[in-house]
Simulated scan of single mutants.
Amino acid sequence: MSLSRGLRPAPRRVLATAGALSAALVLSACGGGDADDTSGGGNTNFVTSKGGISTAAKGERADIDTIAGETLDGTKLDVADLKGKVVVLNAWGSWCGPCRAEAPHFAKAAEAYKGKDVAFVGLNTRDFNKQQALTFEEDYKVPYPSLYDPDGKLILFGFPKGTLSLKGIPSTVVLDKEGKIAARALMALDETKLRSMIDPLLQEK
């Protein structure tokens, strides 16, 4: 059967991009392991500890690309506006078991750092029903905003190639006060591990 006149198939380039987004998110979704991903080039200036946390030394850290949009509650947020603070970026989904496991630790840490130069921002992905994500935040008393990223575009394209980027769900990246990528974990975190990523950056001059 031929296509109706005036109805054209989507360009291959668009289909390929959509397919790549979907495949990348499916392959990386809800990993609970400690594996590090150093793909993206041979000039990766970071090291990974035995605990699975990768760090980049000051002076060897990369800037993020644009990570901005609308939060789950409809507010506009641009991570670039948070320079001057240590910023914790956490990719999560309400459907993800390890995300549920780490959520109480993130909520507790966010409350503990309140009033200090630390900002927490979630990146909620693959929750095509926004209400499920909002219920997750309510259930775990999440006190910080999450950018709504159902297609995973911010996660996949918010970081330069070859840097410490968000690679799975859950995963966490911490930015230093200059907005540069300083640490990453590709696993669910408890409060102790999360603090080990934040505290050294708070102490930097």
Rank of each mutant, 00 (worst) to 15 (best):
A56Y: 10
T55A: 12
K161P: 00
T48Q: 05
F106V: 11
A29D: 13
L89Y: 03
H105A: 15
D127E: 05
G52P: 10
L134Q: 13
P150T: 01
E60C: 01
D73R: 11
F159Q: 01
G31D: 08
K58W: 08
S94T: 11
G32V: 00
E102P: 10
L156D: 07
R13K: 12
C30F: 12
R100D: 07
S49N: 11
V14A: 13
K108V: 03
H105V: 03
D65P: 02
C96A: 06
K85M: 05
S39D: 10
K83P: 04
T38F: 12
D65S: 10
A107F: 03
K116I: 04
A91C: 12
K85A: 12
I155H: 01
L134N: 07
K114W: 05
D63L: 13
K50I: 09
G51V: 05
H105K: 12
S28F: 04
K58P: 13
K108N: 11
L89V: 01
T48C: 13
P143L: 03
T75S: 10
F46V: 04
P160M: 02
A16S: 14
A18R: 12
G31H: 14
T125V: 10
Y144D: 08
G152I: 01
E111T: 14
T71R: 08
A18S: 12
E111W: 01
A107M: 07
S146R: 02
A80S: 15
L82P: 08
A112P: 07
A20P: 09
G32Y: 03
Q131W: 06
A133H: 07
G84K: 09
D117N: 13
A29G: 11
K141R: 10
Y144W: 10
V26H: 12
S54E: 05
K130D: 04
V47A: 11
F120V: 03
S54A: 13
G51E: 15
A103S: 13
S146V: 00
D37A: 06
G97I: 13
T48V: 02
P98Q: 01
I53M: 05
V121Q: 03
R126P: 04
N129H: 10
D65K: 15
A119V: 11
